[in-house]
Nucleic acid binder design. Structure first.
Lengths: 206, 206
DNA sequence: GTCTATACTAGGATAGAC
DNA sequence: GTCTATCCTAGTATAGAC
């Protein structure tokens, strides 16, 4: 049995609206109507829209990390984990990214309190990706000349840009195709296997 | 000598605001204040915000194609053109993409008249990229196993996602790094690639 | 064609009762 | 803690004069 307080309901509603409509386009009124909380309660818990927004932004940013950690720090060789990261099927391309979308909202970008969690989330993802890419290079799964930071950013842009293309097309295909393209390139570069199953024949570092 | 009519001034102002703030967050009032045109003139030329928005969206989408065409259908081998496309230095990553940003605006996405030019612009870019990639494969500059459509989408997502990462970081580096990563991968795959490692002369742009 | 004046709704927030 | 009532400004659009 879980008791959900008004405060939590407000944050949940704001989080959803942040995803669906962005920060600037979400009114306190819309939040109240979504969760059925009255005007007074809302301003009792959050002195302003900005405060509620900040709580919701943090909520959304936090929500995305566990999945990334589970894959990138999970089982499998480094290259397998990178490919798994690019292949996960729990995205909803046409709805956009809960975190990435916020960067296109001028009101969010202009307010450090709102943007900071977004920055941290991307930085954390970058750190994990670059680490796994370095492991892959060390393990001989990727050529040694590659720059892990560049490649890590490229993997994130593939996802983030995928949302943009999918929404523009009204079709998730570009999202899936871009990710497939990135996977193709990684596989094509794997020294051990031109077009084979990428299971590592040699032991990988632990 | 160029005479600029009110109508054109309105579209220009709306186009700029579309880039800076998005559609939903741009009010007719803001447009008028930017170009100094009165309320009456505005509604004389455009019966609603939506109509002005549609004209401005088309204006912005049209504006981006010539540069792309110049590079992708310009001189150089196919692979060189692809690398040039990924290396152009006329982007302003922290300001976002005039076209891509629109996909994050629910009011734009919900209105076919506003979204259509965006869809067409991305489709046109995709067509050109996929064509040049196919040429590169035919010319032996890229391996034959690659899927041109996938790779074309991945190149667009690299740019579009680059804007997202750069804005989140408050720094253009991720934008440049992601593009450099994509260039690295293309070079690493080029069969004719000199016996050297794929480390490009590092700086971000060429 | 362009202007000012006006109208109506929604966004954002406060006051005070319970 | 939560509610309703109220306030003020901005967003969007119309009316009618020049």
């Amino acid at each position: 049995m879980i008791l959900v307080g008004s405060r939590e309901q407000l944050v949940d509603a704001m989080s959803d609206l942040l995803w669906e409509r962005g920060y600037a386009a979400t009114s306190p009124r819309a939040v109240r109507e979504r969760c059925g909380i009255g005007q007074g309660s809302m301003y009792y818990h959050f002195p302003s829209k900005r405060d509620l927004g900040a709580a919701a932004v943090e909520h959304n940013c936090r929500a995305l990390l566990p999945g990334t950690i589970a894959i990138l720090e999970g089982p499998g060789s480094p290259l397998e984990r990178l490919i798994a990261y690019l292949s996960r099927d729990d995205h909803q391309p046409l709805k956009g990214c809960k975190v990435g979308r916020l960067t296109q909202d001028p009101e969010v970008v202009a307010d450090p309190a709102l943007l900071a969690p977004v920055k941290v989330a991307f930085a954390a993802t970058h750190g994990m990706l670059a680490g796994v890419i370095s492991e892959a290079i060390t393990a001989g799964e990727l050529p040694s000349g590659l720059n892990a930071d560049h490649l890590a950013d490229m993997m994130s842009t593939t996802i983030q840009g995928g949302y943009v293309l999918a929404i523009a097309a009204g079709d998730r295909a570009p999202f899936d195709n871009a990710r497939a393209g990135a996977v193709d390139l990684l596989r094509a570069l794997a020294p051990t296997s031109p077009s084979q199953d990428p299971t590592v024949p040699e032991g990988h570092l632990t």
